[in-house]
Amino acid sequence: MGQGHVRFRAELRALLPRLRRFGHALTGSADAGDDLVQDALEKALSREDQYREGTRLDSWMYKIMQNAWIDNRRAHARQSRVVQPMSEDIVAVSEDGRDSFDAAISLRQVREMMTRLHEDERAVLALVSIDGLTYQQAADALDIPIGTVMSRLARARNKLLQLMESGAPTAPKD
């Protein structure tokens, strides 16, 4: 067990919160997201020798997760969408309460809206808007050209805005 091995695990450990968040955003469910993380961790540990030190571990892990998710989706083709209610909610996110646009929408509704986007769109939003990766990093993680990241992001944001503006009538109102 070399130092590299120990460091690899420590870095994976440090990434876990972000991986879980990505899994949640991508799958639409915290549980399904964690299953994806588990799957990706097992793959990463077994393929440690394929990871090149000095490259971004987060991009590498996101790529593994994304691929595992695609495989998973193929395996359960056309499985109905998973939307899992969470404990908190109806949280107005505007600081002053005057922004009726934001305040009318709960965080749960935002997550529900995410599940209505195409999974490719969810992936770019999860990486760029939520995780803060650059377009290049997201392109590397998703194995797509940077121009595609850009167009998917614009499309995803427009769809999300349309859902928000329509008040997301089918979203849970608890």
Binding site: H24, D102, V110, S129, R157
Partner: peptide, 18 residues
């Protein structure tokens, strides 16, 4: 367009800090 992302990170903050 700038509004689209505003609630995204907060929507998953719970998972990040869990």
């Amino acid at each position: 367009l700038s509004r689209a992302d505003r609630m995204l990170a907060p929507a998953y903050a719970e998972t990040l800090s869990a």
